[in-house]
């Protein structure tokens, strides 16, 4: 029995130690560390680089900026939070110029690496740089504003007055919490405008060990909401959310809202219900920061990226012109800050 336990533990360890690396792009990895080379390495959180949401947009940004600058880019997908530091080390020891780490949970590892490798520039997506390190730039977003805008839309679209959010991770992750709370205040704002009394937008946070990576959980939770008459559902959270979107798409008359990127393109099975997505322009943010680093203008600190709601695409016909105009107006005011979201940063 003891042997079996040891064997199982060893097996689990082997499985989690592994990581997958991307194929090489235009320039060559051997140029890294030389004067001519410009190399951008990206380390994902335990999510995947093709998660159709935030890891994917970060990687697309890193890839694009590296090729624009004639450099080389590569990613490592983290499979276990224990490996954050060692995955960063892999790039650092090869002489990469810029290392992009994705996700709030990697903030500590990134800050530590910035101290350890003072000559390498670090970009932390969804991270806040609380240190004075000049080689570490946190890329943050006012997610509450994006959440507020789609929540406002949801408040006008709902017929039952019941709106909900499915969060792919716990509310201890600030970007998740800000999206969700922004959504709820957006719904409340729309309800107040219409002089209707809607219950506060409900939320289920993911409760297992596979945050952002459990589509079946997202789908089951969506089913639970749908059977209770919730008709506009915001699915915020990587693949977990995508599973929810796919499930809602099968329910006639229900609307779903995506997250991070315009999920109309990345989650085609959600198209029957996907009325919009709460977008963070992660790619653009990564590109801007890396360009600043290359030009030598980047001084570390924190960079605030832009947010917004994705277009309605084919569902524009289901959103009346007056609602579209209202959303447009409110969206501008929220982004400018004249309508506060009431969510603490």
């Amino acid at each position: 029995m003891k042997k079996r336990i040891i064997a199982s533990l060893a097996a689990v360890a082997i499985a989690t130690l592994g990581f997958s690396a991307s194929p090489a792009s235009a320039a060559d990895e051997s140029s890294c560390g030389t004067a001519a080379g410009f190399c951008v390495g990206l380390v994902t959180d335990v999510g995947k680089v093709d998660d159709k949401s935030f890891n994917q947009s970060a990687w697309e940004g890193a890839k694009a900026v590296a090729s624009q600058l004639g450099g080389f880019s590569k990613y490592i997908e983290t499979l276990d939070p224990k490996d954050y530091a060692s995955n960063i080390d892999l790039f650092a020891t090869k002489g990469y110029n810029v290392i992009v780490t994705v996700g709030f949970l990697m903030a500590d590892a990134t800050a530590a690496a910035a101290v350890k490798y003072p000559n390498i520039k670090f970009v932390g997506v969804d991270q806040y740089n609380g240190s004075t390190a000049a080689n570490y730039t946190g890329l943050g977003f006012p997610e509450d504003k994006a959440g507020f805008i789609v929540g406002y839309l949801a408040g006008y679209l709902t017929k039952t007055g019941k709106t909900a959010a499915i969060a792919g991770g716990p509310n201890s992750i600030p970007p998740v919490r800000k999206f969700i709370e922004g959504f709820a205040s957006g719904v409340a704002y729309a309800a107040k405008e219409q002089k209707k009394k809607y219950p506060k937008a409900s939320t289920v946070y993911y409760t297992g060990a596979n945050a952002f990576n459990d589509p079946a959980w997202g789908a089951s939770t969506a089913a639970q909401y749908l059977t209770q008459g919730y008709d506009v559902i915001f699915a915020a959270g990587g693949k977990t959310g995508n599973g929810g979107l796919a499930k809602i798409a099968k329910k006639k008359g229900a609307f779903c809202i995506g997250v991070d990127t315009d999920q109309w393109n990345t989650v085609p099975e959600a198209q029957p219900c996907l009325v919009s997505s709460a977008m963070k322009n992660i790619s653009a943010g990564v590109i801007d920061i890396v360009k600043g680093i290359k030009a030598g203008t980047d001084k570390g600190g924190n960079f605030v990226g832009s947010v917004g709601a994705a277009p309605y695409h084919a569902l524009a016909s289901k959103v009346s012109a007056s609602i579209q105009a209202k959303v447009k107006a409110v969206s501008a005011k929220v982004i400018a800050g004249t309508i506060p979201t009431g969510v603490k940063a």
Binding site: P215, A216, A246, K247
Partner: peptide, 18 residues
């Protein structure tokens, strides 16, 4: 059941520890 009935999509690591 997971892919063709419950969810209707597939992603890497789809089974998520089940």
């Amino acid at each position: 059941y997971l892919t063709l009935e419950l969810v209707g999509s597939w992603d890497r690591g789809f089974s998520a520890g089940k």
